[in-house]
């Protein structure tokens, strides 16, 4: 299990990734993150909502009312162009972080 503290700076990246291919709604995003985490990380609902709301305010995602397969109304979130660029920036930031920290990580002897 990876601690929530460690992931904190990358919650936005996880959420944006779930929206890359198609618009999605709250629980579906949550499930997507759960699947890719393979039990190593669990995002709380409040963390997810807080991230989505923040991304909406900065213009990275837009929301619209839609109905999913079982006919229930859901708030869907769609990635904007700015959101895509923001995702790319976050990925680049992550690669640099990995490279940076990697320089300090020695193989065990």
């Amino acid at each position: 299990m990876i601690s929530a503290d460690f992931i904190r700076g990358y919650v936005d990246l996880l959420v944006l990734e779930s929206l890359l291919d198609q618009p999605s709604y709250g629980y579906a995003i949550s499930k997507r993150i759960e699947e890719l985490s393979r039990g190593q990380y669990e995002m709380k609902e409040t963390t997810l909502y807080s991230a989505v709301r923040r991304l909406e305010k900065t213009g990275a995602v837009t929301s619209f009312q839609g109905t999913h397969s079982q006919g229930r109304a859901r708030t869907y979130y769609r990635l904007t162009e700015f959101g895509r660029r923001f995702y790319d920036e976050k990925c680049e930031e992550w690669r640099q972080t990995v490279a940076l920290v990697g320089r300090f990580v020695r193989d065990p002897h």
Binding site: Y25, G26, Y27, S30, K31, E45, T46, L48, Y49, R53, R74, T75
Partner: peptide, 16 residues
Amino acid sequence: RARSELLQMSEDRYRE
């Protein structure tokens, strides 16, 4: 809005 979104997420999870 936060209440309704969080309630929806929780209900979806519960149903599943």
